[in-house]
């Protein structure tokens, strides 16, 4: 092996071996995207008004269904506020293909699952469930709030037209913070 090959191969092998022996996922990594997204999901209920058919007035419990984003689900479930299910304001339900969405208020679809999420998203719209995603272009395919990175921060775009069609109302505070808001063309 020439010196040149060594130069490329040795560090590469070192990295590979670390990758195999290292932690499998971002547990305990630097303050992560997933933690910030989990925090958003936890807080979103304060900025959304559901129609009475989806949520009885006075019903304090928010159910967040999560599919294709195990890390975010794990982060949420690890929150101290969620430990006591009787007092917790939020419950997390990990979903799989085919699971019923009744009772869910917020559906979060991870990037790895989005391409397969069509039927679930369509069902969510009919049930007045807030659909949140992290996939470029998802707003055109039924998502209502889509996370994206902007300037090393997690920001989001909103499809207000889709949300309104599902009977959801969004607070102006949320709309102000959105990088963009797609509204229905009235004129």
């Amino acid at each position: 092996m020439t010196a040149w090959r060594k130069l490329v191969v040795v560090p590469a092998l070192a990295c590979l071996s670390l990758a195999m022996g290292g932690p499998a996922r971002a547990e305990g990594g630097a303050a992560s995207e997933d933690a910030v997204k989990a925090a958003y999901l936890y807080k979103l209920r304060n900025y959304i008004e559901w129609p009475p058919r989806a949520r009885a007035p006075g019903d304090a419990m928010t159910v967040i269904g999560i599919v294709g984003a195990d890390e975010v689900a794990g982060q949420l479930q690890a929150m101290p506020a969620l430990r006591d299910p009787r007092k917790a304001p939020v419950t997390v339900r990990r979903l799989r293909t085919g699971d019923a969405l009744s009772g869910v208020h917020i559906l979060y679809v991870g990037a790895s699952y989005w391409t397969r999420a069509g039927p679930m998203v369509a069902q969510a719209g009919a049930l007045a469930i807030l659909v949140v995603s992290e996939t470029e272009g998802a707003l055109a395919e039924g998502s209502m709030i889509n996370f994206r990175l902007a300037d090393e921060r997690i920001r989001f775009d909103i499809a207000l037209d889709t949300a309104e069609k599902a009977g959801l109302k969004m607070s102006s505070q949320l709309l102000t913070l959105a990088l963009s808001v797609a509204r229905e063309r009235k004129k």
Binding site: G29, A30, E33, A39, Y42, M79, A81, R155
Partner: peptide, 26 residues
Amino acid sequence: AADPDVQELADLSLEDLANTRVTSVS
């Protein structure tokens, strides 16, 4: 590396959360 504290993040205002820098994201 320390555990990121989701609870702490969730206690931020929405504006501050939107302004929270996420590391190693590039």
